[in-house]
Structure formats: C-alpha cells, structure tokens
Simulated scan of single mutants.
Amino acid sequence: MDPIVEVVALVLGFVGWVMVGVSLPNRHWKTSTVDGNVITTSTIYENLWMSCATDSTGVHNCREFPSLLALSGYIQASRALMITSVVLGTFGLVAALIGLQCSKAGGENYVLKGRIAGTAGVFFILQGICTMVAVSWYAFNITQEFFDPFYPGVRYEIGEGLYIGWCSAVLAITGGICLTCSCKLGTEEKYPLQYQTRGTVYSGAAPTRSVAASTYGRNAYV
C-alpha cells in the first residue's frame, strides 16, 4: 500500500474525529425562528444537551434538559452514539499512528503494522457509522415533526450541527476504507531455496571393508 494513501487516510480520520468533537457540543442541531416585529422576533435552537433562545437584540438564554429519563428516546440514543463515536475515533487514531508504514512505532514487522492499520480503519468506519446514525435519526425526527400537520409543538428545521456531523461521518468512513484496504493479511513471501548438486549422488548401502579392499586390490594391478 502506498504510504501516501495511508497518510491521507489518517488525515481524513483525524479531521472526522475533530468534527465529531465540534458537532457534539454545537447548540444548533435544530433551529426555529418565531417571527414578529423587530423587537419580538426570536430564534429557538436545541442540541442534545440544552434548549436556547435568542432575541433580535442578541440576548440569549439557555436551559439544560432537566432529566435524562424525561427525554425522547432518539435524543438519548443520539447522545450514546455520538459519545461512542468519539471513543472509537480515539482508538482509531492511536492504532493508525502505530500501523502506518512511515511510523517507527511497532518495529519493522510490516505484516503486523498492516493489520494494525486495518484495525484502525475498522474503528474509523464504526465511528462514521455511529455519527451517521445519530445525526440522521435526529434529522428524521425533525422533518417528521415539521411536516406533521397535527404536531402542536414548535416546528424546527435542521441546524448546522447536523451538517457538521454528516461531513464528519463521510470523512471518517472514507479514511477507514483506505486504511482497511492497506491491511496485509497475507504472510511474508517465502522464496524456495535452489539446491545445486556438483555430482551424481547414489543411494545405497555402503560397501563393507573386505569388499572395498578386494576391489582396490584388483584395480591396483590391472
């Protein structure tokens, strides 16, 4: 595998991991604007942890969700998936730094380093899948409530935090696929040894001492 491809995959995985960390605390997972006059116009936005509101003067107030058990199931699941994504990305970065061919960590066993790089790729792919499921599930509920004519609550729209999460998932999955392809599952090449014989080798029982002596005597006087 080309070391340049491995480095590019590591960079993609790292950027995806950073973007997960940016998306997780981002306050704008869903937003809604309440229209009014210049003074009463306000914007309401939420994420996985709190609900905030701001008015036209720039004053904003945030309130954390009071109870975990009182939250909707998809919010709890999205929290767990995003935290799992950060953990998997951390494991993937550590494994990738060890498994790269240009890295001195792990010695000179390139077969083992290739397998470690493949494991890092799996971690990155799982990170991307967790992020993709979390943000897509959250966005699905936003759109379902928005287009429901009988929904009595505030109608939200998709916020910037979800777009950051989608970009993070795509980058992590792309980097993970590149690292997984660099995994060397084969064994080291074994070259057969070529034996060259200088003469003809005959197999058989060794002649006895008397036979050898008698043969020598006949040949000596012929």
Rank of each mutant, 00 (worst) to 15 (best):
G89T: 12
S168H: 09
M82I: 08
G161P: 11
S210T: 15
S78L: 03
R63D: 13
G114A: 08
L93G: 15
L69Y: 06
H28M: 07
R63I: 14
G36A: 13
R209S: 15
L126H: 08
Y74G: 04
S23H: 06
I142D: 00
Y74D: 11
G121K: 03
Y163W: 10
I158P: 03
M19S: 05
W49S: 12
W17P: 04
L179M: 14
Y191F: 08
T187L: 10
A120H: 04
V5L: 08
I173Q: 00
W29C: 05
L81Y: 03
A53T: 15
G176Q: 10
L100F: 01
S136V: 09
D35Y: 12
C183K: 06
G186A: 13
R218Q: 03
C102A: 12
T84Q: 00
L24Q: 11
L12Y: 07
N219A: 05
M50G: 04
K113A: 10
G58E: 04
T215P: 00
A80Y: 01
L88D: 04
S78V: 04
C181Y: 01
K104C: 13
A120N: 07
G165T: 15
T143M: 02
Y216C: 04
L88A: 12
A139R: 10
S85V: 09
N61F: 09
D148C: 10
I142Y: 01
Y163L: 03
W166S: 10
G121S: 08
G92I: 14
V111Q: 01
E6M: 02
G128W: 10
T41N: 03
C181D: 01
T84L: 10
F14G: 13
E145W: 05
I44L: 07
S72M: 14
D2H: 06
L126Q: 09
L162D: 01
R79D: 05
G99F: 01
G106I: 13
P66Q: 06
V11L: 12
Y191M: 04
A169R: 09
S85T: 09
L162P: 00
I39H: 14
F150K: 07
T41I: 06
G73K: 07
C167S: 15
G186M: 02
G106S: 12
T84I: 05
W166N: 00
V94S: 07
S203I: 14
A172H: 13
E6Q: 15
V11D: 01
G175S: 12
I129D: 06
A205T: 08
A205V: 06
S210G: 13
T84F: 08
G121V: 07
L179H: 05
L97Y: 06
S72Q: 15
Q144D: 14
Y138C: 05
A205Q: 06
R155K: 15
G99W: 02
P149F: 02
E46T: 14
Y45E: 02
I39C: 08
E188Y: 11
L48W: 03
L100H: 02
A139E: 14
L88E: 08
T187Y: 06
E64Y: 11
L162G: 00
I4N: 02
S51P: 03
S32I: 07
I4W: 02
E188F: 10
W166P: 00
S214W: 03
